[in-house]
Design a protein around this nucleic acid. Sequence first.
DNA 1: ACGTTCATAGTGGTCAGACCACTTGACCAC
DNA 2: GTGGTCAAGTGGTCTGACCACTATGAACGT
Lengths: 240, 240
Amino acid sequence: MPLQPVSRRSVTDAVFDQVLAGMVDGEIGAGETLPSERRLAEVLGVSRPAVREALQRMAQTRLVEVRQGGATTVRDFRKTAGLDLLPRLLVRAGNLDTAVARSILEARLVVGPGVAALAAERGGPAVAATLTGAVDALAATDDDVERQRHALAFWDLVVDAADSLTFRLMFNSLRAAYEPAIEALASLMSEEVGQIGAYRVLTAAIAEGDPETTRAAAERVLRPATHNLITALEALEETT
Amino acid sequence: MPLQPVSRRSVTDAVFDQVLAGMVDGEIGAGETLPSERRLAEVLGVSRPAVREALQRMAQTRLVEVRQGGATTVRDFRKTAGLDLLPRLLVRAGNLDTAVARSILEARLVVGPGVAALAAERGGPAVAATLTGAVDALAATDDDVERQRHALAFWDLVVDAADSLTFRLMFNSLRAAYEPAIEALASLMSEEVGQIGAYRVLTAAIAEGDPETTRAAAERVLRPATHNLITALEALEETT
DNA sequence: ACGTTCATAGTGGTCAGACCACTTGACCAC
DNA sequence: GTGGTCAAGTGGTCTGACCACTATGAACGT
């Protein structure tokens, strides 16, 4: 078996996860006030600095609002949290949330063509060359996991070519949610990452510099697997 | 003058901002190692817990990687950071980064129609009613700032109707970057939030449930101001 | 001379206890 | 009512200590 690195969960992480789980599961509804740091430390059996670090991180993610002298209140993470929270919501207690997974696929289908179109507008011949190299690498392997990584590298280059910090950060967030599940998705994504031709068409469209053709080509790359995955997720949902 | 709440910057915040600024300005290139927590605390004249809280937050945002026993290394925020970092990159040292602002507008133009199309697929009559109410509220005021807030509330409802957690979090992140600048953008956004008719057309398209019509209607709402703002930003850039 | 072993110094992780700054709410005087 | 005062509780910060872990290089055996 492939040994995997041991995950050393710090006390702070444990506190963070536990409080977050309470919020996601609805045990700690929005608007409620959290116990004081001292009290939390006492209840959880850890020191106050450990609790503080966890709460600071939650505040950074806009999950809670801390006010000196006052209580720490829980915010509605659906209304305030940012995209960085996505990986934590995709898998809850080890289980994949199918509704969240579906929304990621839908977002990918919207954002992907948009980024590609921008890349077509801005990319030059150098971009076309590196993209071609990425597709070649994709075509050179048979392993589904490896192919997914190469496809990811391909899109990484597309995002670079789009020269948009917003799309870059968006891509990073989505990738952070996607990568942990890359092995589990190997078979489901096999069809998408196997259609080398579609990637070549997309690359050519970007090289040509025509946004609309590019948008259509990107959709042709992404739509089949999107559809398949969503139906697979729905089937998975029914068995649960 | 309108009194505004005093902003109390904590020591931790100051440390966070200072280190982040160093990374963004390139003083601390990616791959380098940060000084130890004790050393940082000494240099910055604060306690170690304060430094720790800041570093923990940076690790959460994937700006640095801390390893027990080893040094804390700086990561390439362009490759690893998520969308939550956007507000911090939009304004640096009080100045608006025009390239980042442009990328936000471009992303909005891609994501907005996509979300609206999803809302059209999923929304029912109830959605149509609330959207109409939001447009009515938008039409009821003349103040540009107020209109922007109502437009934001309108899009908030659209995102709700799309029933997509990914788009919801994406919207939250983009809003977090946009809201602080809402007053500065009042005049530039005036044209967009003033075209009540376009919002009504979009609402009707969503109510009708046709994704393609909706996508086109959403583009008609967003494109004019997007174009204007980008040219305005370019002009601003030249004067600098 | 080379590779291995292993103490050691330095790092992040955690804790306890203390004090300060602030918010809140009750109470009181006007 | 209005405003002032006070005490209790909260988050903010600091100090100093100890533990767990990593990297480093000297000592060792070959």
